[in-house]
């Protein structure tokens, strides 16, 4: 059993395996919409390697962070931009 890390996604606590990215935590709470596009459309991860910026979320109060490139740390607060 791998070590778990607990983070909060939109205020909801979730545990993911250590080394998981924030994108994994967002998916783990059942969300597919990571951000809302400028025209109001739902968006989620595309490239998985940090170049498309579709998986942007707010992490510990900082906007526009790429969830696919950010490794979860204990207590991390992740907020998606969408319903």
């Amino acid at each position: 059993m791998s070590r778990q890390v607990t983070v909060a996604v939109n205020g909801k606590s979730v545990s993911v395996p250590a080394g998981s990215t924030a994108a994994v935590a967002v998916a783990a709470v059942g969300l597919s919409q990571f951000r809302t596009s400028v025209d109001g459309e739902p968006r989620g991860p595309l490239c998985g390697m940090g170049i498309c910026f579709e998986c942007r979320v707010t992490i510990n109060g900082r906007a526009h962070r790429r969830s696919c490139q950010t490794v979860c740390t204990a207590g991390m607060e992740i907020c998606t931009d969408g319903p």
Binding site: V16, P17, G19, S20, T21, A23, V24, A27, S32, Q33, F34, S37, E41, P42, R43, G44, P45, L46, C47, G48, M49, I51, C52, C68
Partner: peptide
């Protein structure tokens, strides 16, 4: 990086790169 080409619906969450989904899964998805 992967080349992504637009088609109707390609912006829906759940549509990812091929290598893209692999990368996401390798990082724990």
């Amino acid at each position: 990086r992967e080349r992504f080409l637009p088609f109707p619906g390609w912006t829906l969450p759940g549509v990812t790169g091929a290598g893209g989904l692999q990368s996401l899964v390798k990082s724990g998805l």
